[in-house]
Every structure is written in C-alpha cells, then in structure tokens.
Amino acid sequence: MKPVIEVRDLGIEFYRGKKRRMSLREMVLQGRNTAPTETFWALKDISFTVQPGEAVGLIGGNGSGKSTLLKMIAGVLIPDKGWAKVSGEVAPLIELTGGFLGELTARENVYLAAGLHGLTVKQIDERYEEIVEFAGPQVKANMEMPYRHFSSGMQVRLAFSVITTLDKPVVLVDEVLAVGDRSFREQCYVRMEQMLSGGKTLFLVSHSEADLQRFVTRGLYLREGRLVGDGDIADVLGAYNDYSDNNP
C-alpha cells in the first residue's frame, strides 16, 4: 500500500539568534551585521512513513522539534535537507485561528477559511448550519459580529468546527484538543473519533498521554531533533517517560 505521508532524511537548520538583514542606516553606522550567525539543526535525518488510516502520535519534550516537523509535513516550512510528501488533501488543525481575519464577521470568515481550503460556495452553504451548530450557541448567536470581538475560546470553537468539516483524508493536529471548556473538549473528542472511524489518517502532536492513548496506536519519539523511537504507542510512551524520569 502506498504511504499517505513519506518523510525521508528530513532536516532543517535554524539560527540560534534573530538573524536579520541590516538597514542601510545600520550598515553606514555600524559597518557590519553583528547579529548571531551560529546555527543548529532543529531536525536532522528524520525518516518514516504513515499508511492510510493510521493514527500516529508525535511525542517529545519541549524543543524537540514536534511542531516544526508537523509544519514541514503541512508544507508551511521548507526543509534544508531531505523531503516530506503527503499524498492527498490535508485538514490542518495547526494554529487554528491564523487564517481568520479580525475585521470580517464570523460568517464571512467561515466562507473565507473554508474557501481557502477548497470548498465551493455551494458546499459551504450546505455545511454552514453544521459548522455553527458544532461551534455552540454563543458563537451561533454572534455570527454577524466582527471576528476580533470573539473571545479566544469562541474563535477556536469556530475555527475547529470549520476545519473538521473539510472532509480531507489526512488530519494534522497540534495540541488543539487542549483548548476550550470540558464540554467543548468532549465534543472535539467525539468529532475526532468520528473522523478516525471514517478511515482518515491522523498525525497528532500532544503532551497529553490520555489523548495519545485515546486516539493513536503508533508513536514517534523525537529527542533533540532526532527520531529515537517508532512503535506501539504504549512502548514509545514508556521509553519517553523513562528518559524523562532519569533526565529531569
């Protein structure tokens, strides 16, 4: 079976400081750019495949490269070495509210965000009620309000609802299940389970062992930018916890 996600010898190099271009005035006054030029490999030599219908969790401590890897799979970041390929369309649950515009109404943002992900106006019309119902009564009652006036919780509710109605075969998730109140989190869990039961491929980044054990069967373990574990989620979580306990 052809993999739906392929990552081969992937690597990306970052500057340790905020290296930037100097303005003409700075070059005249200072003569040269004194910004740090030291680099490090945030990810290096990462290789794995994910089959259609698999549910995979990405595990690692803060700064291990999890979100960076997810963004490279999503095509947001370009690797310096190797490549990442996704066969099929993606529903990216990453920085959910990033594509929403504060000056537009919530209704306008639904059409904008869904349209940018490939839905036609007719398709959005057909799904509109489902989107706002899932987002909850407070969101539904204020769809003509500028999006910037929504609370952060309301913004995330609407964004999650839009993205999870896209019906894409590959779902990339970065910690978004940790947001919202208890009731909304349970709604999100149910929606995720429905997506998985429909045969979608899940790639989940989370620090929550409960979420990982609930949704995924396979774990990938990143440590200091390298892939050090790939196997059953219980075994990979055990290896991660053992290392964390012995290296506080």
Rank of each mutant, 00 (worst) to 15 (best):
Y147N: 03
P137G: 01
E130C: 07
S161Y: 08
E129L: 04
P146M: 08
H149P: 02
E130G: 06
S161H: 08
G153L: 14
K140T: 00
E129D: 12
S152D: 10
G136P: 14
V156C: 05
M145G: 04
Y147L: 03
E133M: 07
A159S: 11
F160A: 07
M154T: 06
K140P: 00
A159H: 07
I131K: 04
R157L: 05
G153E: 12
S152M: 05
S161D: 07
M143V: 13
R157N: 12
M143E: 03
A159R: 03
F134D: 06
G153C: 13
I131R: 04
S151G: 10
S152Q: 08
G153M: 13
F150L: 01
P137W: 03
A159Q: 03
K140D: 00
R148S: 11
A159F: 06
E129C: 05
F150Y: 15
V156L: 13
F134R: 10
P146L: 08
S151K: 15
K140I: 00
M145H: 08
S161A: 14
A135M: 05
E129S: 12
V139L: 08
A159L: 05
E144W: 08
F150A: 00
I131F: 01
S151A: 13
M154G: 00
M143T: 13
E144F: 11
F150G: 02
M154W: 06
S151R: 14
Q138V: 15
K140H: 06
L158W: 10
F160H: 10
R157W: 12
M154P: 00
R157Q: 12
E144Y: 11
M154E: 04
V139C: 06
Q155W: 01
V132L: 00
Q155R: 15
A135T: 07
F150V: 01
Y128S: 00
P146H: 10
